[in-house]
Design a protein around this nucleic acid. Sequence first.
DNA 1: TCATATATGTAAGTAACTTATATATTGCAA
DNA 2: TTGCAATATATAAGTTACTTACATATATGA
Lengths: 116, 116
Amino acid sequence: MKMISTDLIKGSLKTIVLKVLKENGRMYGYEITRKVEELTAGQIKLTYGALYPVLHKLEHEGVLVTESENYNNRLRIYYSLTEKGESVVTEKIREMKEFIDSLQNIVNPQPGLNHA
Amino acid sequence: MKMISTDLIKGSLKTIVLKVLKENGRMYGYEITRKVEELTAGQIKLTYGALYPVLHKLEHEGVLVTESENYNNRLRIYYSLTEKGESVVTEKIREMKEFIDSLQNIVNPQPGLNHA
DNA sequence: TCATATATGTAAGTAACTTATATATTGCAA
DNA sequence: TTGCAATATATAAGTTACTTACATATATGA
């Protein structure tokens, strides 16, 4: 099973990260990539070069907060949504659902259902 | 109803154009943007600065061919899929369907359905 | 007469990524 | 005991698919 082209995924990263955090509460970066892989049956694999900068940016914007911990001599930086983050993710998900609907109307058009 | 953020749409443009051309046969650029707007209830509006370069590129790659015509003193350049284009669009649609499935598994996770 | 719709096009700029690189520990297999 | 895969985070340089702005021209309706 071929992976999805990165061009398609590009743009969805932030929403994906936030939604996974909303579902699972506190998570660390590495864990997020694994969760996304699991949810998408390996179709979407986040790269760390994309993930960490996004997490830092979201923290800087006050959407996420961090807690550092040590597990088995390995640093883990847990991220969780702030109150602001909760409302951001709600809006992002709404938008993504509309996006999915739009794509579905294109790949699987229902004749007569849309007439502008 | 707010439009979908361009970041999300970015990456889907090529597939959208090709799929619409597959459904409707011969179309000109302006017509394509209108059709996409119609199909997505105004959610996705292609910009000409993105559309025309993509059409030219796809023509250059042998995915599309053009026929110029004059309608009401206005130039219309009709695009249609080549044989190569047909197989390209089939693959693109397959990929987009997987993408939609993946996004759906994220925004609407089904517990217990995915276990890696 | 003036805005809106129709129709195509290019050039400059942005930013969200990818790819490559860096570091360090654990655990398992050869 | 050596060496690779997995775990864990991170930055820097480069790419590219777009957006925004600009350019041109006709038809149509207010």
